[in-house]
């Protein structure tokens, strides 16, 4: 086989991969090897998804979930960047906050669900807080390390030119660390979806994961799987969207 033939073969297989997977799934589900009620075929999932969208409920759920993720992500990112710059630049901040953050960071955010329910009830702020909590430590760590990687020479050059302290932090150090911060932010996008799942499972009145849970209680397995497909798609789009944005965020590269 020539190089070109091999390339075409791989492309063809890649294009066929998902359709073959779906067809096999369909066959297995309808063949009574497994219980079709528990393991519905993709056609049933597609119908469930379509009904969800058509009823208008999908838009409501989508909006609720995206709003939680967005609010938690934005707040967590801002706090993470601000604290990362402070601990990265000032040893005193680092000496005080570093041990505390390193102590809290390894606790999976999901483990905070019970206490968050006690603190916030089933309100939106509790869910946003969980996402915030998950996002914060990742962004903080990347900003902290990014600041420490900023060339000290750049800071000296800025000082020599008369840059005031505030501009030094907000411009020179922030932009110097931005390539690292952006990597942390991208990781935080997927983390914010993990924590969203925990937040909505803990109790909500709308949202993609809430819908999955309700469907499970009603034995609507098609709807359950449809919800998972929707969640996967949204998370994928958010990641890709963020990747595109981050390319532009570091505009000088």
């Amino acid at each position: 086989m020539t190089e070109g033939q091999r390339g075409r073969l791989y492309t063809t297989v890649a294009i066929l991969s998902v359709p073959i997977f779906l067809v096999m799934w369909e066959i297995v589900s309808r063949s009574h090897i497994v219980n079709a009620v528990l393991f519905p075929p993709p056609t049933v999932v597609a119908v469930a998804l379509w009904e969800w969208i058509e009823s208008g409920q999908f838009a409501v759920d989508l909006l609720a979930s995206v709003a939680r993720v967005a609010a938690g992500f934005v707040l967590g990112s801002i706090a993470g960047i601000v604290f990362g710059i402070l601990t990265g630049q000032f040893p005193l901040f680092s000496a005080f906050l570093g041990p505390i953050f390193h102590l809290l960071r390894p606790i999976p955010p999901i483990a905070f669900v019970p206490i968050v329910i006690l603190w916030f009830g089933l309100s939106e702020s509790g869910k946003i807080f969980l996402v915030f909590w998950g996002v914060f430590f990742t962004v903080w760590l990347s900003a902290h390390l990014g600041v420490q990687k900023v060339d000290r020479g750049l800071i000296r050059a800025a000082q020599m030119l008369g840059t005031p302290r505030r501009r030094l932090l907000g411009e020179i150090i922030f932009l110097g660390a931005l390539p690292y911060i952006v990597v942390g932010l991208r990781t935080a996008v997927s983390i914010s979806f993990y924590t969203l799942v925990a937040a909505e499972l803990a109790g909500a009145f709308s949202g993609i994961v809430y819908r999955i849970e309700i469907a499970q209680q009603n034995m609507q397995t098609g709807q359950v799987l449809g919800g998972l497909v929707a969640l996967g798609l949204i998370s994928f789009l958010a990641d890709r969207g963020f990747a595109a944005v981050s390319q532009r965020a570091v505009w000088w590269r």
């Binding site: 060339d151 020479g153 750049l154 000296r156 050059a157 800025a158 020599m160 030119l161 008369g162 840059t163 005031p164 501009r167 020179i172 932009l175 931005l178 505009w251 000088w252």
Partner: peptide, 29 residues
């Protein structure tokens, strides 16, 4: 301070600024 300009062994230009903005940085500050 800005009364003592310094040129380092490495250029240490601000990578996010164009040539013009790098040169303009001091006067802007």
């Amino acid at each position: 301070g800005p009364d003592r300009g310094m040129v380092f062994q490495q250029p240490l230009l601000f990578p996010w600024k164009s040539v013009r903005s790098n040169i303009a940085h001091g006067p802007v500050m």
